[in-house]
Amino acid sequence: MNGRRLTPYLFMAPAAFILGVALLYPIAYMIYASFLDWNPSQRIGQAEFVGLRNYTWLLGDASFRESLGVTLKFAFFVVSLEMLIGVGLALLLDRSIRGMTALRTIFILPMMIAPIVVGLIWRYMYHPTVGIFNKTLNAIGVESVPWLSDSFWALTSIIIADVWQWTPFIFILSLAALQSLPRSALEAARIDGATGWQQIWHIKLPLMMPVLIVTCLLRLIDAFKVLEVVLVMTNGGPGLSTEILSLRISRTASEFRELGVAAAMSNYLLLMLMLLTVLMFVYSRVSEARAARIRQAAEES
């Protein structure tokens, strides 16, 4: 009897072990490292324990604060734009037109390209003299734009590239949400006199909302962690104008050789992401609870 009760745990043990080694150990290591003043030339045992000094120092560090600001700005703009364009496209393409299947496939292509490649493609397109944007602008008599060499334009450029790559993600999720909406409710709305806009505003968007909220949070989590595209396109420059947090972390560790500070920075990022994850979790719990309450009410009536 006792052996039988242990069997499930036995089956779970390998997975739990791998999870522990691959996930929890590095995190624990990172948390421990964030309390150290640690140079890569030292072994971890030789590093000096400094308590929360790395964290407090970071709060006062202008570069870190700027990097955090850039990250927040970047995340805010890309997610808003992607939501707007992705949902908009889904609303436009939720119909049966000839060739729609091919069109949809083309729309989701950018998402499938490796981020490094995306970064390279856009870097070439943004090239000040031979890039397609400036060449086109010059051809129609407009002056070149300093795409990657001006701090305003550099941030704009990486936002554009990220929007290009990740809008399809929101597009396919919202399209799936749209197509699972009850058709008859939309027909009822047409008979009730709702125009196309009113159907979107009063019926489609409210009914898509649960999917949109989760999609938005997922994208937000991803946007905070973006690295490759920015690394390839601007490497954080010019100045610190596009130095998002993950880039700052990697530079702190490799260039400034401050492993403890880098670890503390990672933990700040982790905290932010945890906050978002908890939000998502709370949201799904709340909506589940509401659904359960509604079901119960329906059964009682």
Partner: peptide, 19 residues
Amino acid sequence: EPKDRDIAMVFQDYALYPH
């Protein structure tokens, strides 16, 4: 358009607006 025909309709699955 349906809205210009002065009609009201009741559907088989009721088609109420769930929200």
